[in-house]
């Protein structure tokens, strides 16, 4: 039986991600785990996350999962969600500046500061909380059956700025444009919560469970 490891580092609502995966994929076993060996053996890996980056990185390092994530991030289908996407960048300005996993170059920024820098005339409330549309910037197996411009559920105050086009699969606008979906080789990561995005989110998760990790 195929397995999907949902990395449990003691933060956030892991139950929802696990339940949503079970809902869309009866063929796989969903393992919510912090065990490096289990994660390495899994066929697919999900890094979920809500909360603050400092606590996230501290927990990942304490459990020695940072090296495991870099490893599986290079060799099997890997899905990061929300903070689990932001943690893939080099640094985050959250918590006074934090070094993250460094799998994608760039810095995670805060909306409020960037609204001011960009001179956004009517800045929205922060957190960016609720449903927003995602523009699919290129084809990807995880977009199969999901119309361009579909609505997804977001809740975040920090965001991943626009990256190299080659690593971006989706963009969203909230006062400014930001990266909604990172995609490179076997890695996909979403700023929104597919596990909370009803039909479109479940479709994306179903696509992930069938994805072989090639773009």
């Amino acid at each position: 039986m195929a397995t999907i490891a949902v990395i449990d580092y003691g933060m956030g609502n892991l139950r929802s991600v696990g339940k949503a995966l079970e809902h869309v994929d009866a063929r796989s076993r969903i393992l919510v785990t912090d065990d490096p060996a289990t994660i390495r053996r899994a066929d697919r890996v999900v890094l979920p996350g809500v909360g603050a980056i400092r606590e996230c990185m501290a927990q990942l390092r304490r459990l020695e999962l940072d090296a495991v994530i870099r490893e599986v991030g290079s060799n099997k289908p890997f899905l990061g969600v929300c903070l689990g996407m932001q943690a893939l960048l080099t640094t985050s300005e959250e918590n006074g500046g934090m070094e993250a996993l460094g799998m994608f170059p760039g810095e995670v920024r805060h909306f409020t500061a960037c609204f001011a820098e960009a001179g956004v005339p009517t800045p929205g409330k922060v957190p960016h909380m609720g449903w927003n549309q995602v523009r699919q910037t290129r084809a990807h197996p995880l977009w199969r059956g999901i119309p361009d411009g579909s609505w997804f559920y977001f809740v975040h105050s920090y965001f991943v700025p626009l990256l190299d086009d080659a690593w971006t699969a989706g963009m969203t606008t909230y006062g400014l444009e930001f990266t909604a979906v990172i995609a490179r080789e076997n890695i996909i990561a979403t700023q929104f919560h597919p596990e909370k995005s009803q039909t479109a989110g479940l479709a994306l998760l179903a696509n992930f469970t069938r994805w072989d990790g090639t773009a």
Binding site: G124, H128, M129, G130, W131, N132, Q133, R135, G149, W151, F154, T172, T173, Y174
Partner: peptide, 8 residues
Amino acid sequence: MTLAKRIV
């Protein structure tokens, strides 16, 4: 594209 007002 913009954030939708929510009905709860």
